[in-house]
Simulated assay, not measured.
Amino acid sequence: MNGEWIEIKVVTKSEAVEPVSGIFYGLDVKGVAIEDPNDITERPSGPFTWDYADYNIFEYGKDAAIVKAYFSKEEQIEEILNFIEEKLKELRDLGIDIGIGKVIRNKVQEEDWANEWKKYYKTTKIGNSIIIKPKWEDYNPKEGEIIVELDPGMAFGTGTHETTMMCIEFLEKYCKKGDRVFDIGTGSGILSIVASKLGADEVIGVDLDEVAVDAAKINVEYNKVNNVKILHGNLVDVVDGTADIVIANIIADVVIYLASFVGNYIKDNGLFISSGIIKDKQDEVEKVLIQNGFEIIDKNNKGEWVAIVAKK
C-alpha cells in the first residue's frame, strides 16, 4: 500500500452523502470515507499533503460534507472522473440536492496523509462503556470501560461517524455472551471487535474491499481478540450458517438489497442491525424489512442518519 494514490473527493451536502457514496461503491475503490465539519474539533493549518491541504471543508458552509475515495495511479482516472460527473448529473436530474457537487482530484503520498489525519482522531467514549482509542494515544481506562484500539488506515470506521456510533450503542444494548455475529462491510473491523469484547462467542467480519480487510485484520491483532475472523468477499459467498446478530453499517440501498435474503443468515428471533441510512430513506428501509418478515423493534437517529434494529 506504500506509494502514491489518487484521491477523488466530491464536495456535497450531508443529506446527499448516501447517494454520492453509492457512486463510489460502484467503482473499484481502495478505500472510502466521509468527512463532516461536525467531526472536526480544530481548524487545520500548515502545508499538509492530505485532504485539507488544497482546500478547507469549512469554506463550503456548515452543511457541506465530503465523500472521498482512493484509487491506484495505474487506474483509468479520467474515465473514473467522467463516470462520477455523469452520476452526479443523474442525481441532480432525479431532484437530489447534492450541493455544489464539486469533484476534486489529488495525488496523495500515503505516508503523508496517513500520519497527518491522526492529529484529528481522538479517544472517544460511545454508549455506556465503549472507549474507541487510537492506537497511538495513551488512555487510562476507568472501571468497567471496554477499550477498543484502532488504526483504521484507509478503511471506513473510526467510531466518530454517527452511523458507527449508533451501531456500537446497539451492540452494547443487544449483543450478549455466547452470540454469533456477522459484520457486513466491516471496514476497519471496529464493530466486529466491539462485538467480541462485549462477549460474542464468534464474530465474522466481511468486506469486498481488500484494503479494509487488511486494516481490519491488523486491528483484530491489536485488540488480541482470537474469536474474530475477517474475510474478503460477499456475505453469501464466504459465510456459512446463521448468526444471532447480523450488523451492516453500509448505505440504505445496500440494506434494502440485503433485506431480501439476509434473514437466511439470522437465527429465529435473531437481530439485523443496520445503519448508514439517511433519514429520507428510513421509511423505505423499514417497509422493505417488514415486507421480508422482520419486526422493527428499535431505532435511533443522529444528525441526518438512522439506525434500525429488526427482529427476524
Rank of each mutant, 00 (worst) to 15 (best):
F48D: 05
A259D: 09
I98F: 15
Y222V: 03
E42S: 14
G185R: 03
N300C: 01
V211H: 14
I247G: 00
N2M: 05
I204L: 05
V211A: 15
K267I: 15
K13V: 12
G185C: 02
C175H: 03
L231V: 10
E145C: 02
M166G: 03
Q76A: 11
A155L: 10
L289H: 04
V203E: 06
T12Q: 07
I80H: 03
K312M: 07
L258P: 02
K118P: 07
K13W: 12
A195C: 04
K177C: 00
R180E: 00
I80D: 01
E145T: 00
E137F: 04
E304D: 11
R43F: 04
N301Q: 09
L235N: 02
I126G: 00
V103F: 08
K89N: 10
C167M: 05
W113G: 11
I308W: 06
L88P: 04
V309N: 03
I80Y: 05
K302P: 08
I57F: 01
E35D: 13
W117H: 12
M154H: 03
F48H: 08
K107F: 09
V213N: 05
I266L: 13
D237T: 07
K281T: 11
P134N: 08
E284I: 12
L198Y: 06
I147W: 03
H161D: 01
E284M: 10
E86D: 15
Y139P: 08
